[in-house]
């Protein structure tokens, strides 16, 4: 239990939660407003983080530009997904979107020369045994921020601490922007399309355009999450981008109540604790399991939470019951 007393553990949980929070915000605008069942969201995260890493390592491109291009590629991925499959029935789209992210993962997995393949991030041996790093610029930014923050917060300030602050500031800004966007008449139309295609179309609204835009916005936000994911882990592997991750996002979204953004940070922290905290489940009965078995249990618990949640409180912790009843 001692791990739970360490501030470092909580900072780690907070950083993870923040990244997952941003990731889920992308799903929120797609499903919570537009009713779009995107189960391939993790693909956007994979696209942006790999694009950034490849551009920095293999082409020596400036970090900021590489990150921006990474997000743009995620948006492009969203556009590709939207153009090919968004006109399909809702359940077909859900399945096609899973396929999209799996295809992204397969390509990463099998393009050893470009991505390092299964070995993990661009594990192209340069000199000696060092992995080429794409986080140099970022590390220096973190260090500078650390010098500024240490006098304020004291010794607790380490790399993770600064990361947590940056991630949560970004999440805060994005939440603010998205909640503003969701008060526009654009969002009103999108909300209408969640229930029905014919009514908005009969009133002169191009339903496809609204949905497409929602997918792009969601993909951009997912892409931003991917950049942070890449910077946080500093070593990418195709296994970071399993469809499982998309479902983590869905779990957070449902916990938070899909239609409102305000519950999202708390739901993200709850998930972060469940996810990160369960590796510290060293007490009985978990003490009988070894580390890899505990990893199985962790995903199993998330599966059980998902089932119980959908069975008993599908509107989430903060959602309105009425919105679900009227569905």
């Amino acid at each position: 239990m001692t791990a739970l007393m360490q501030p470092g553990f909580w900072v780690f949980i907070l950083t993870m939660s923040g990244i997952y929070g941003i990731f889920t915000l992308g799903l929120q605008i797609q499903y919570g407003v537009g009713g779009i069942l995107n189960f391939g969201h993790v693909g956007m995260m994979a696209l942006s983080s790999y694009t950034m890493a490849i551009l920095i390592i293999s082409h020596g491109i400036n970090f900021w530009i590489a990150a921006a291009i990474g997000v743009a590629v995620a948006a492009l991925g969203g556009a590709l997904l939207g153009l090919t499959t968004l006109r399909l029935r809702r359940d077909y789209f859900a399945i096609a979107s899973i396929a999209f992210s799996e295809i992204v993962r397969y390509v990463i997995y099998n393009s050893d020369g470009l991505t390092g393949g299964v070995q993990g991030s661009l594990a192209i041996p340069v000199t000696g045994e060092n992995y080429p790093s794409y986080t140099d610029t970022w590390d220096s930014i973190i260090n500078r921020a650390r010098d500024i923050l240490t006098p304020i917060f004291g010794e607790i300030v380490d790399r993770d601490f600064v990361m947590a602050i940056i991630v949560w500031t970004t999440l805060g800004i994005l939440l603010l922007i998205v909640s503003r966007v969701e008060r526009t008449s654009w969002a009103r139309v999108l909300r209408a399309t969640r229930e029905d295609d014919e009514v908005p179309a009969a009133l002169g609204k191009n339903v496809f355009r609204f949905r497409f835009q929602a997918v792009i916005i969601g993909s951009v936000i997912g892409g931003i999450a991917g950049i942070f994911w890449g910077l946080q882990s500093s070593l990418l592997s195709p296994d970071d981008f399993l469809t499982l991750v998309t479902f983590y996002g869905w779990m957070i979204l449902i916990l938070a109540g899909a239609t409102k953004v305000k519950g999202l940070p708390i739901a993200a922290i709850f998930f972060g604790f469940l996810y990160g905290g369960s590796r510290f489940f060293t007490f009985w009965p978990f003490s009988m399991l070894d580390a890899s078995e505990r990893a199985y249990v962790r995903i199993m618990i998330i599966g059980i939470v998902l089932i119980i949640l959908m069975m008993s409180r599908p509107q989430g912790i903060f959602g309105k019951r009425q919105e679900m009843v009227l569905e």
């Binding site: 009103r188 909300r191 209408a192 229930e195 009133l203 609204k205 919105e323 569905e327």
Partner: peptide, 18 residues
């Protein structure tokens, strides 16, 4: 629409403003 279609999960006002 036959049988009248409203967007059930939008407010009456939002339905109109649509």
């Amino acid at each position: 629409f036959q049988g009248a279609k409203v967007i059930k999960r939008l407010s009456v006002l939002d339905n109109l403003m649509l």
